[in-house]
Each structure stands twice: as structure tokens, then as C-alpha cells.
Design a protein around this nucleic acid. Structure first.
Lengths: 199, 199
DNA sequence: TTATCTGCAAAAAATTTGCACTTCT
DNA sequence: AGAAGTGCAAATTTTTTGCAGATAA
């Protein structure tokens, strides 16, 4: 583990998993809370991640094991960007109850991605995971100073993407956009520091 | 090396390095040639990559070595996406003339990026490099079938990016957008194959 | 002359894999 | 019972680093 990865986005309330039977994604809206943190509204889905994974496993003749059940609970217990190493560090150690070997963690994370529960992308050489099920499509701003990932959602971007692809007969599966720079907080810190340095 | 990385984009003619003394980027235009290949027009720059790197080295009190000179010639001899491993494979082997150790290749590639000559990004776990100097800002379509990278250029995307960033006081340094999917060629191949399978 | 570079080999970091044993179904 | 899954350790893959000898300025 070389980097701290945090995420400013938190769910305003738990995802409303049972109130709507439609698995269709509703329009996500990005909102800003007083402390400057942003969050996207969770999507209403008919199944919990657990249930959906169960379906996925059954459809492929795979098994429900304690490790898989334990990991899905952990991974979906809070909304946050993470990498394999960070997850492993928060898991029970060898010898403790519910210990899961790293090999299994890696294997299971890949299954979660295959099942559409998690999204993954590369950042600074690591594979970063985030919730994909029950959470709207979005893109990221990455602060190279504090290494936090911020989320944003733009329909215009999607439209643009589709236009570009259509223009050359490219069939789109997904996209990934990351804007690199320095977040407001870090910019302010730096200005402050420069000011102090002058005194 | 796990992946073949190719690039359909070729320069229509060598970069016109000497005809304009302005280092300012001119507007890039994406064009389509009859065979379906796209290319972006090179930017007019006042210095060759070699000259620019020389400046960079001097400004930092670094040295011009045979290895650096050799590598910059190789890297800028054709416009193509590549990773460290692919470059190393095309270089003279140990014992031959102009051999450069992999450690030096890695170190030098990083210098090229620092000097603004190359851009780098992560794709499928590797670091991919491409020309940054003398070539316009652009983004990529990545075909997961043939693993080729196609380039596209969109001012709307830049505008959108700047708006998103401005909205939350984020100072942008750069961005990276990769559209994943299947290119036209591969789609056609698949359709053909499916047809044949039915016969 | 001397700080910078290079090559080499070893280390690191992040995954993946082979295999014997365990566990779902 | 028997396929699938797990843990372990070893292997991979990609990149970095320490260090002694080589070299540019």
C-alpha cells in the first residue's frame, strides 16, 4: 500500500433498496452539502448487493461460501473507494475469526466486478474499486495533493462520449474519466502556507 | 509483456518542426482517412524533442548521455503508443551496440514525462506512453477486442472538464478519458464470425 | 575532478497461480 | 461423491533501488 485513498462522498441515507421494484437506473443528481462535500444520490434497486450476488453465483453454478458472504457484507457496509490492500488491512488477521486469505480477496473482488457489483479502475498503479451496483454512473476528480477522489456526474459527458463513439462506429461498453489537479481545500492550504512563508 | 498495443494513428507527414517559431499549440483537427484510420495533425513546435530535452537537462544541471540521446531518437522516430517492455524489446540486446539497461529505460521514460515530452497513463495495469510534445491534447477509445488505442480530440470535452472543475474550485492539471468498447473492425469481424457459425 | 549516470542484481509492490486440502450442493 | 473454493507459498509482472564502476562537464 503506497497511497491513502479516501472519498468525500457519503450516502445521505442508506440506499433505499426495497421501495422500488424497478432495477432501472434513475437520474442521478449531484448535490453539495454545506461542508463542501458532494454526494450522488444512490439508485433504487430491487435487490440488495447480497441478493444480486447470490443470483449471479447461482446463474453460473458457483457456490455461496462464508468468505464470499463475509466479503460482500464488508465491501457494501460503507461507500468508499478502496484497493485490495486497504480492504485486506481492515479484515480479520490470520488466525482470527472470518479470516480470508489475500488470494481469496483478490479472486472475490474480481468476481464482484464480473457480477457488476463493483467497478474498478487503475490509479497510480493500483486497482481502485468502488460501488457500482445501487450507485449512479459517475466520473472522478483526483487531487494529487491529498490523493482524494471526488465524484461528479455529467449527462453532457455521456452524450459527448456516445457522439464520439458513434462517429467512428465504436460500440461503447464503458468509459473512465479522471480529472487530475488540486482540490479547493489543498489550494487554500498552499496559499496559506505561502503566506506564512513570506512572514 | 502481456498485451499487444498498437495505434492506428500515423502522422500524415513528419511534424513540421522548423516552419514556425511559435511554441503555442495550434488547434488540432481530427481527420478521417479513406481506410477508416484517424489521425490528429501534429502541432508546430519551435524545437525538436531532442532540443527540448537538451534544454530540460541543462536547466536542471543534468547530463546528456549516449543513452538519453539514443532513447529520445528511438522514442520519437515513430508515433505510436508503447509501454516500457515493448520499447525494451525493440532496443539492442545486452552486448550489442547502444544497449541500454531496463533500469535506465525506466528512469529515462520518467524523465521524458517530467520534461513534457511524453504523456503516460495506466491501461490494464501497465504504464502506456505516447508523444506529448508536438502532438495535440487528445483522448482515447480503447478496443477491448483488438487492444488498439484510437485517438480523438474534442474541445467540448475540455470545456466540460473545465466547467466541472470550476464548479468545485478544483484546479485542473490534466485529465484522462478512455472510452472502452469494440471498434468497428472488430464488430464486423464478430458479425461475420457469428454468420459463419450459423451456416 | 567530481557529481551524475549506468548497469547489474536484488528488492518491491501488486497480483496471480499451482496444489493439496476443505467445503458446498 | 464430486466439483468448486480456499489457504498457502511460490511465481509473475512491472517497476524501483542500492551500489560500485563509468562518464560527462
Amino acid at each position: 500500500m503506497r497511497f491513502v485513498l479516501a472519498c468525500l462522498i457519503s450516502m445521505q441515507q442508506g440506499p433505499d433498496l426495497l421501495s422500488d421494484s424497478s432495477p432501472v437506473r434513475s437520474r442521478a443528481v449531484s448535490t453539495a452539502s454545506p461542508n463542501g462535500q458532494d454526494s450522488l444520490t444512490p439508485i433504487k434497486v430491487s435487490l440488495t448487493p447480497q441478493q444480486r450476488f447470490e443470483e449471479y453465483l447461482q446463474s453460473r453454478g458457483l457456490r455461496q461460501t462464508n468468505q464470499r458472504k463475509f466479503l460482500i457484507d464488508r465491501v457494501f457496509s460503507h461507500h468508499e473507494h478502496f484497493d485490495a490492500d486497504e480492504l485486506i488491512e481492515r479484515l480479520p488477521r490470520r488466525g482470527q475469526e472470518n479470516y480470508v486469505s489475500s488470494a481469496t480477496v483478490y479472486r472475490t473482488l474480481r468476481e464482484f466486478v464480473d457480477a457488476g457489483l463493483l467497478n474498478s479502475f487503475q490509479l497510480d498503479g493500483r486497482t481502485v474499486y468502488e460501488h457500482g451496483y445501487g450507485y449512479p454512473q459517475h466520473d472522478h476528480l483526483y487531487c494529487t495533493s491529498c490523493r482524494e477522489l471526488f465524484e461528479f456526474q455529467s449527462d453532457d459527458l455521456l452524450e459527448l462520449r456516445n457522439e464520439v463513439a458513434a462517429q467512428r462506429g465504436f460500440r461503447v461498453n464503458s468509459h473512465r474519466m479522471i480529472i487530475q489537479g488540486v482540490c479547493q481545500k489543498c489550494s487554500k492550504k498552499r496559499r496559506k502556507k505561502r503566506k506564512q512563508d513570506l512572514v
